[in-house]
Amino acid sequence: MYDSVIDPTLGPAGDARGRTALAPRPGDLSGLRLGLLANTKRNAEEFVEEVAGLLESQHGVQKVLIRKKPSIVEPAPPEMLEELRAECDVVVVGVGDCGSCSASAVADGLQLEEAGIPAVVIVSDAFRVSADAMATLQGTEGYQYVTTPHPVANLSRQGVRDRATAAVPEIVALLRGPNVAPAS
């Protein structure tokens, strides 16, 4: 009857976001350009820097970029994402050591995967609940990330280094691993 009336609620194609497919994995990290995406939580930047140092010395990646998100709550802004996409082959995101930053870190990881960049998100174990909730909200239940014990903010630089060392094997596995869909 009124079929010619346009539905104003219909969003852009692909708006009803399905599961985010992970970006293809590189297999070998050697020679790849590494980007770091940190939030403003204390020790977040230090943590991803330590991870970068280890990935450089042990796996031959080359750190090319570190960006700090302006907001703890929000995912990285589009221009920051574009920069990472343009200049990096793999990205490490962290550290989700609070409710909102663990959730937004997962959103960042999924944004990067969607842009074709393999990414690994580091979340402190106290915040699995909010990280998982964000993954589900984004249509990607069961998204895998790397955890480190909470808290991170009170660690010394050596403490951060120890945590980074402990996390690296899992980070490498997720960056390099076979491109399997996470279990849902």
């Binding site: 969003g11 852009p12 708006d15 009803a16 976001r17 929000e74 995912p75 909200l137 984004q138």
Partner: peptide, 9 residues
């Protein structure tokens, strides 16, 4: 509105 998973064009 990323938290609502809605975009407008």
């Amino acid at each position: 509105q990323s938290h609502l998973n809605r975009r407008v064009t």
